[in-house]
């Protein structure tokens, strides 16, 4: 059986990123490499972590301990879109808990769960540094949606669902 390989396009990005650090510090590239892998495959499986360790020539434990520490990594499959709802103080003061309940009811899932159609995973996230535009939603760990209310949530979910078809 041939050994598992990460996709060439991902390896290229990893190698490019590693150039930001001294040659003798390949470990520094782990944090972003895992995000490249996740962007490509959707989540992080054990064999991908092992393959990354091998590629960077570092012990696998150094990859695993990072993957389990930072909150943006998914160690389980998630929906096509992750919906993060900020539940820190400024968003909470501006109604994020009500918004969370609204979305829970609308999608029929709780934080940490994925809708049956595999489209949405709901997440509670911490302050996103967009507090003056509370409440704030984060899609796929990078796209900000600010000053949200039930109406704008409806529009957003509609847009995302259609983008999928």
């Amino acid at each position: 059986m041939s050994e598992y390989q990460l996709d060439q396009s991902v390896l290229k990005k990893i190698d490019q990123w590693a150039k930001k650090f001294p040659k003798e510090q390949p470990r520094s590239a782990v944090i972003k490499s895992l995000r490249f892998i996740q962007d490509h495959y959707g989540w992080l499986s054990d064999r991908q972590l092992d393959a990354l360790a091998k590629h960077l020539n570092i012990p696998a434990i150094q990859v695993y301990e990072v993957a389990s520490f930072y909150s943006m990594y998914h160690r389980k499959p998630v929906g096509r879109y992750t919906i993060g709802i900020c539940d820190s103080i400024s968003c909470m003061l501006c109604g994020s808990h009500d918004l969370m309940h609204y979305i829970e009811n609308k999608l029929g899932v709780k934080p940490g769960e994925t809708t049956k159609d595999g489209l949405f995973t709901l997440e509670e996230v911490e302050c996103l540094a967009a507090c003056t535009k509370a409440p704030v939603l984060l899609i796929n760990g990078k796209d900000y949606y600010e000053n949200m209310d039930p109406k704008s949530v409806d529009d957003l979910l509609e847009k995302l669902s259609q983008g999928d078809s």
Binding site: A29, I31, V66
Partner: peptide, 18 residues
Amino acid sequence: AGAYIVGEETAMLESLEG
């Protein structure tokens, strides 16, 4: 990759070291 504590300066150095 998401962690408030990275903002603490020596934690940031650890994170930079991967």
